[in-house]
Every structure is written in structure tokens, then in C-alpha cells.
Design a protein around this nucleic acid. Sequence first.
DNA 1: GAGTGGTCTAGACCACGAA
DNA 2: TCGTGGTCTAGACCACTCG
Lengths: 247, 247
Amino acid sequence: MTKERSALSQTDGRLPLHARVKDDLLRRIRAGAWRPGEPLPAEPALAAEYDISLGTLRRVLAELASEGLLDRRQGRGTTVRRASFHDSLFRFFRLGDGGEARVPESRIIGRDIEAAPDDVASALLVDDGADVVHVHRVRSIDGRPLLVEDIWLPLPRFAPFAQAALDTLGPLLYPEYERLLGVVIGSAKEQLSVTSADVATADLLGCEEGSPVVQIERTALTHADETVEFRRSHGRADAFHYQVEIR
Amino acid sequence: MTKERSALSQTDGRLPLHARVKDDLLRRIRAGAWRPGEPLPAEPALAAEYDISLGTLRRVLAELASEGLLDRRQGRGTTVRRASFHDSLFRFFRLGDGGEARVPESRIIGRDIEAAPDDVASALLVDDGADVVHVHRVRSIDGRPLLVEDIWLPLPRFAPFAQAALDTLGPLLYPEYERLLGVVIGSAKEQLSVTSADVATADLLGCEEGSPVVQIERTALTHADETVEFRRSHGRADAFHYQVEIR
DNA sequence: GAGTGGTCTAGACCACGAA
DNA sequence: TCGTGGTCTAGACCACTCG
């Protein structure tokens, strides 16, 4: 009679052990079994739970750490890493001077509840016309406007965000999502293209209507791959500047 | 008397063993100790050479493989991976239809030897005014011009390339560098910005002078981090389209 | 001091690929 | 068939963090 590893019953038995354990841990991480910062069970406990050797478990944890999902520190434990991608303003736009990583100021111009336009609905995976929160804001450095953002969030999940006093919101929204709703952003996809500025955007950016602007569309997901935010940002093309390092 | 590991004499003795072995392997790979595709010594041989256990060596090799430098295949051996980043045309521009990964056609408009302009000289790390090969070409899909490229290569290293018959050159230059000169590209840095088309570029791209174009500046390096190519490409901004996935 | 992850070793068996 | 890397185990000792 073969020994069953009940903890792995949901994984593909044809895969090597380490792959099955990795899949299962991935599932639990995505399911939010541990909050970011909260330690996972210690290695001997996890190894016992999966009925595998310490070496095999350690290999899996090392892989997940190298892929950026886990944080391992001697003496402290293994924790789920909080996603911390840079602000797209910093990744894509050249700032006044090089150097310091300042958080750009944020001025919210409007926040309301509206029926989702087609493109927003399909990005957020909600029905056309479903209610969503819409935030419109400008991000600046030293008072110089650099990026105009439209942000859409699904309801009813983001109702607390729709009601929070505007002056309590910091310039970075993801920490606010976590504080107000317990929603932790795990990954995002961004899509860049070049368009031309409409009147309102040109006005906010201080450029001429029709002048080229870089458009960044971002879809943000939780660790469980739930789509929870869609934003469309525009910045002056003459300030655009992006570097890629290729393997 | 402590046992010396002569193979590691060039590495920092305060580092853990696996890190020292990794540094040394990295150095040898960069130095071209093995050609891409040629197998490294087998694990037991390498482990003996470094006087470390198989497990430790395997950990190092697995790391290098996961970072894309090595290719490991059961029964075949461990080899240095040939860099194979996608053509920037595919990474940054939307093509007629989605789907197939065709290699765009290439039409060389000019090739000559010239004195390096300031920006080219500083990118290639050669003296201002030093002789360089300059290639000017247009890349198209289905006869539709998508990208205009200026490519500069340092002399005398690229002399064979300057002399090769144009009709023997394929649309992808990196395989040609390898064939003609034994130069293998290991990595590249790209820098994107938005400018406006000059007359000549507009003419080649079929757009109006002054209309927005995306500029891609690429510096290509060998595994040994020697700078061997600088290219500046321009494509129509309305065809620009780039996706990033963030952790 | 107790518990955590970090490093390192030794050895077994399996699956793949080339000769 | 033989040598390669792939998987898995067992156990030792060290270094860091925290109460």
C-alpha cells in the first residue's frame, strides 16, 4: 500500500515532488494563507506537513524566493513578499534631476461612481455599465505636472475607498487599498503606446492639444489573480524615457 | 595547514563557497572559456576541480541556469546559452496581425566607414572621430516599412563586416557577427524615447516630417561586457506598443 | 538559549540522449 | 550501454534574530 501525501492531493501526481509542493505552496500563497510579513511555518514543520525531506522543501522555498514571491531571512523566517514595483512615473519618465526616489505629489481632481465604459469593463472583467469608482488625478514633482491618471475600481468591493475622505489618502494608492480593504496588489501588466493629448489632458500637463503623449494602461491583480484596478495614465512624450536591460 | 582551493584563488575568500564558485564560473563564461552550445565539463569533473561536493556545484549550476546563462539538459550536458532576445521590432511594435513570429525583411540603404559622431563614440567607448562602420537600413514586414535603423560598429574589429558582400547578409545581424567575427552578443541595454521624424526618416517610414516617432537606442555587449554595437532605431509612434509584466 | 534559515556534504536511484 | 543531469534523502554545523 502506497503512502498518500494528503497535502498534495490537489496537484498533478505525474510531476516531480518538488514541483507538486511548489504548486501547492503557490496556491496557498495566492489564496492568502499568510499575510505579507507574516512568517510561514518553519522548514521542519512544512517538510513534515508535506512529508518530504528538508532538502527538497528548501529547494522549493529557494525557488519561490528567487522568483520574488517569498522573502527568506536567517533567524526571522520565511514570509510572503509584499509587491513593491516602482511607481510607473519613475519607471517611464525622466524627472527634473536624476537621483533621489521621491514620491510624486498627487492631486485628486475628481472621484465619483459611474457606469463602466466598455474598455474599462472589459479590463476589470465586470459587466458593461456596472458601477465602478472612478478617480481622476494629477501627479507632479515639485509642482510640475507629469502624469494625468484615470483609475477605475470595481464595486462593491471598493466601496470603502469611494467613501474615504480625500484628504486622508496618501499619494500611493496601493497602501491605501491594503489599509482600507485588505487588498494586496500582487502583480500588474502595463501597456504602453503613444497617442495625442486631448484638451483636458493637455491643459493639465501644460502642453498643446494634439501634442504626443505616452499612454500607460495598467491592470493590477491580487496574488490570487483577481483583477482589482485599471488605470490609464498619460504623460508628456518629451519627458518619456525608458530603459530596458536585455538578458 | 589549510587546504587551498587553487581554482578559487581569484575570488573573495570571505564569501560562501557556492558564491565563490559562481563568481569564478561567471568569469570563465564571460571570458569565453566555452563557446555557446559546447558542453562544460561534467558535474563530477567540475566538482573535483573546485574541490567541492556535487550538491554545492549543482546548486551553483542551477542558479546560473535560472538566470539564463546556462542551459542544462539531461543526457546532453550543461552549455553556455546563446543570447536570444527578441528583435526589438517585435518587442516594441504592433504588427499587422497578431501571431506568427516572422523575421522582418531588411533592406540596407547604405554602409560606409565614417568618423564616429560624439554620441556614437561615447556609446561605443571609442575616441571621438575614430573610424566606425555605419550601416543604414529599413526593416519591413510584408513590404510595409516599420523601423529605420542606424547601426555603428567599432573598427578595426568589425572590418570583416565592412567588407562582406551586402547580399550575403541575413536580416538578423547578430548571427552575422558570430559567423564573420566570432563575436557573440551577450546582453543589451535599450533606451526608449519619443522624438519627431526628420525628413529622411519620415520619407522611409511613410509618415509626415515632424510626426512623432519612437526612438530606441541600443548598446549591445558581449558576454565579457565589451561594447560592440550601438544602434539607433526609429519607428512610427502610432505603431508603438509595448507590454510589461510587473512582478 | 531556542529557533530560524544558510551552507555544505555524501550518497542513492532515475530518466534522458548519444554512441 | 554509458555518461549525463534530475530527483530526493539524511544529517552536520554555522550565523542570525529575538525574547
